[in-house]
Structure formats: C-alpha cells, structure tokens
C-alpha cells in the first residue's frame, strides 16, 4: 500500500496530468492517509496534485483549505519550512477565518499557522448564492472576514464602477455582517443589472490585504398592486335632490287641464261662440299647474346628503388606504440577488 501510494505519487508528478474534481478529492484522501502514515514525500506530492496548479482543480474551498493545511504540515515535517509558510499563506488568503484543528495537528503546526496568519493580512467576503428580499423591509447580508484586524470599506457599485452605496466603513476584527436593504444611496430600489460588492482596505499598504469583490446580479420583481375601490354611484348613493319629474308632471296636469277648459267649446260645440268664462277657469287651472310645479321643484334632501357624505368619507378612506398600501408595495420592490464567485479586485478599481 505504501509502495503503491509512492508509485502513484511519483507517477502523478512525472505525468503532470490534469486532474478532475473527483480525482482531486481522491488524491486529497490519499494524501491525508500518506501524511498519517508519515510518508511525507508521497503526501506532499499527492496533496499538491490534489490542489492542482490552477484554480480549476475542482476542490471546494473547504476541501482546498484542508488540503492546504495538510500540505503545510507535511512540508513542515519534511523540513521545508518556507513551503509550509507558503501553503499557510494561501490558506489564510483563501479563508481568513480558517483555523487548523488542534486535535489533529501538533502545536508546531498550529503555531506556525498562527505566525503566518498574523503576518498575512487577508480579507474575504462571503455571500449567499441567491437572496430574495423586499426592499426596505428585508436585507441582503454579506459576511466580511479578516485574518487580523483590518479597517475596510464595503461598497456597492455598478459593474462599470459607478458607486451605488456605501454599506460599511470601519474595523473588522474577525468578521462583520454587512447588510443591504436593496436601495441605492438616493433611496430608490436598485435597478436591474450587475453590481459589485467590494470590500476594500481603507489603508493601502504593500503587505496589506487585497480588496475582494463579489459580482451581484440584481433583478427587480414588481409587486402586484391593489385595485381601487369601485366609484360610488346611485345606488348605493342616495339621491341628493328630489326628482324634477313630479314638478313637470304637476305643470303638465295644470296646463293640459287649463288648455282643455279653453278648448272644450271648440271640441264639443264646434262653430259656436263661447263665452270668456272658459278663459278664467283655464287660467286658474294653469296657474294651479305652476303652483304645483314650484311646490315640487327639486330641492336638496338633507338626510340623503348627510348619508351620502358619510358614504363618500368611507369610500375616500378606503381609497386612501389602497393608495397607501400600493405606495408601500411599490416602495418595497422585490429583488432577487444572485451572487457570483468572490474574486480579488483589480488594483485600479480599489
């Protein structure tokens, strides 16, 4: 087994073959076993191979941190202290909060790690892959990690670098949670687009931590709004004035009867001269019609006016409530934030 492992390690080193993620995990497991068997040369070869020469080796960050820890310990026990320091430095940069397990690794390993951690100033940012939030009331969260005390600024910018909002400015001893309510600095919901969440050291030094950034793809989802209450009509509104119908019916009754009185001789006694008496009666009846018209003239119905006023008030309150609710809903735009991988920000963009 030991020999086979050594042969495998040597053959891998010689071939320099590109490894797949599944193979990387296998190599990591074999490397750990070789380390535990005190076969440090083979362990170093296997672990280096599992890590790969580029970031495409496929190991997840947690496995990568494990591989780097074992590699650093292996190199330390091989007497390659510089290589061990280099592996630990990579580990700190990968995850500033990572700590080797003191039950697994002896003090000389953990002490070296602490020494390297203190010397290596690194920051990182961790975000959930997908966050859905309602602007103003819910928040997108990002955890900013630091290997040692760091003074950072966390900003949100458009992909072209245009600042959108500063989210945090201050020290990070170990980690700090930064939240974003989905609004720009102007208070408006963020538009659809790609944004950069950037963690930048506020004091730039040669050995200081490098800025980190995460690409955020933001998409708005407009909320449904409530329909306005239907306008008030009659009914349920009550008539506020009496109808003009009775007034005109009264007028018509008087005028028709008056006209009939005047016209009766012409209808019933054609060709006969009639006295002027019919005009007196016709006029009286006609005047009665006008009296009836004015008696029935449309007038306000105070009780109905009051009842309608309360109905209108209730309707207006309902309308105002719907408007307020819609305004609230429109202010609370729903955002879907999809996070890309964390990357090191370009120097020019810091």
């Amino acid at each position: 087994m030991t020999r086979a492992t050594a042969v495998l390690a040597i053959s891998l080193l010689c071939c320099g073959a590109r490894v797949l993620p599944a193979q990387s995990r296998e190599l990591l497991g074999q490397g750990v076993k070789a380390y535990q068997a005190l076969e440090y040369d083979a362990a170093a070869a296997l672990l280096e191979q599992s890590l790969g020469r580029d970031s495409a080796s496929g190991l997840a960050d947690s496995l990568r941190a494990r591989a780097l820890t074992y590699l650093a310990a292996t190199e330390l026990f091989r007497g390659q202290r510089d290589s061990a320091v280099g592996a630990f430095r990579q580990l700190v940069l990968l995850n500033p909060r990572y700590r080797p397990d003191e039950l697994i690794f002896p003090p000389q390993v953990t002490n070296l790690f602490q020494e390297v951690r203190r010397a290596t100033r690194a920051i990182a940012v961790a975000v959930p892959p997908v966050t859905e939030l309602r602007t103003r009331v819910e928040r997108f969260t990002a955890r900013v990690l630091a290997s040692s005390l760091a003074d950072v600024a966390v900003t949100l910018a458009q992909e072209d670098g245009t600042p959108v909002r500063e989210l945090y400015k201050g020290p990070v001893a170990d980690s700090v949670v930064v939240t974003w309510d989905g609004l720009t600095a102007a208070g408006a919901p963020a538009d659809n687009g790609r944004y950069l969440l950037r963690v930048t050291p506020r004091t730039l030094t040669a050995d200081g931590p490098r800025a980190r950034q995460v690409l955020l793809e933001v998409k708005q989802e407009r909320p449904d709004t409530l329909a306005w209450p239907p306008p008030l009509t009659t009914p349920p509104l009550l008539p506020e004035r009496t109808s003009s119908g009775p007034a005109f019916r009264s007028l018509a009754a008087g005028l028709v009867a008056g006209a009939a009185a005047v016209a009766l001789p012409s209808i019933m006694a054609q060709g006969k001269d009639a006295t002027g008496a019919r005009f007196a009666v016709g006029a009286a009846v006609g005047v009665a019609g006008f009296v009836g018209f004015f008696a029935h003239k449309p007038r306000p119905l105070a009780a109905n006016v009051r009842a309608n006023a309360s109905q209108r008030d209730a309707w207006k309150k309902k309308l105002d409530a719907v408007k307020a609710e819609n305004a609230t809903r429109l202010r609370m735009v729903r955002l879907v934030v999809r996070a890309g991988p964390e990357t090191i920000a370009e120097r020019g963009s810091e």
Partner: peptide, 27 residues
C-alpha cells in the same frame, strides 16, 4: 248631445272639505 268639463279641486290643509272651480260646456 255631448259635452265636457274641466276644472281644479283644492283641498285646504286641515279642512274636511274641498273646493272646486269648473267650466263645462254642453252642446
């Protein structure tokens, strides 16, 4: 023989009677 009558009847408020003014013609 035919005829007609037209008029107006008024009921005074709170009174038990009505007043009528009429004009009629018979031919």
């Amino acid at each position: 023989v035919q005829g007609g009558e037209a008029g107006v009847v008024y009921q005074p408020p709170q009174r038990p009677f009505r007043l009528r003014l009429a004009y009629r013609v018979d031919d």
